[in-house]
């Protein structure tokens, strides 16, 4: 009796595994294996034809600490994230509130705010390249019209990161707006009416009712924004290639350069491990600290 049952359940277990297999194969091949391989590689030296790869322990991590470019790129990325995330979220919320209200041509406005999101980042970068081009670019032409001198926006280490930040905000806030808009439309209008009757100004209503009720959306958007600020580097390829002098380079772009231009897979793996670790830490922190303040309906 028991034997039979075990056999039966063994058989059904096999079926279960078989059903799971296609998904598992892909997951392992494209997610788990690369992650573990990367982690492993970061402890080995880069092999060449003459010197095969060998275990070096934390040597790659030690050289990372001495790598000036790494620190510069990391600093760039923190500035980049620190500015793009709050501004694009704030803009998204503002635009969502604005297009959620009664205004003429409402759907047209909504679509025009959303358009940047539909465009691929490469296309966006090309558009902005046209804005930033010295002398003939839209920005310079406008400035010249107003009596200012032209400026090589992307060629100046002082302005280039700012330019990249503007492009990202332009692209991202429309995307986040959609989430806020959906959340706003699920808020019952009576809440605002009740608040109004109680004497609340629009600002009070926003601060005490609307914003707290949008917290789940804000959390979601924020995590996406953080991930994007490390993940989205397509525009660098078109606009600056990280230059001049790495002043617009971001972590992921640097990893790409190390791996495919300098062909140092081991060091690229080390950088990747650092990036993954940082992202994981941020995501966990967000869930732990902010989740407490979020009211889910």
């Amino acid at each position: 009796m028991t034997r039979k049952m075990t056999r039966y359940s063994l058989k059904s277990q096999a079926t279960g595994w078989l059903l799971l297999m296609p998904a598992a194969v892909f997951l392992i091949a494209f997610t788990y294996y690369p992650t573990i391989a990367t982690l492993a590689k970061s402890f080995f030296s880069q092999g060449t034809a003459l010197r095969p790869s060998q275990f070096v322990g934390l040597e790659n991590y030690a050289s990372l600490l001495d790598d000036e470019v790494f620190w510069k790129v990391a600093r760039n990325n923190i500035i980049y994230a620190g500015i793009t995330i709050p501004i694009s979220i704030a803009l998204a919320l503002l635009m969502a509130i604005w297009v959620n209200g009664r205004l003429p041509l409402r759907s047209l406005t909504r679509i025009s705010y959303f358009t940047p999101t539909i465009l691929p980042m490469i296309a966006v970068a090309n558009i902005w390249l046209f804005f930033y081009t010295p002398e003939i670019g839209l920005l310079d032409q406008t400035l010249r019209g107003a009596g200012f001198n032209g400026h090589n926006w992307l060629g100046d280490p002082n302005t280039v990161l700012g330019c990249i930040i503007v492009v990202t905000i332009w692209k991202e806030s429309g995307f986040f707006m959609i989430f806020y808009l959906a959340a706003l439309q699920s808020l019952p209008p009576e809440l605002e009416e009740a608040a109004k009757l109680e004497g609340a100004s629009r600002w009070t209503y926003f601060r005490r009712v609307m914003f707290p009720l949008l917290m789940p959306t804000t959390l979601f958007v924020m995590i996406n924004a953080v991930i994007n600020s490390f993940k989205l580097v397509d525009h660098l390829f078109i606009l600056t290639k990280g230059g001049p002098d790495n002043s617009s380079s971001l972590l992921l772009y640097y990893i790409y350069e190390v791996a495919f231009s300098f062909l140092d897979q081991a060091y690229a793996s080390t950088l990747t491990v650092i990036l993954l670790g940082a992202l994981a830490a941020i995501a966990i922190a967000q869930f732990v600290f902010i989740d407490k303040k979020v009211h889910y309906q």
């Binding site: 809440l191 009416e193 009740a194 109004k196 009757l197 109680e198 004497g199 609340a200 009720l213």
Partner: peptide, 28 residues
Amino acid sequence: PSKRRISMVFQSYALFPHLSVEENILFG
């Protein structure tokens, strides 16, 4: 509306879901 000194009870109650009963009552 805020200047009319009128209270209203809505069909859906329109309570603020993230506030406690006390905070809801004291909102105004």
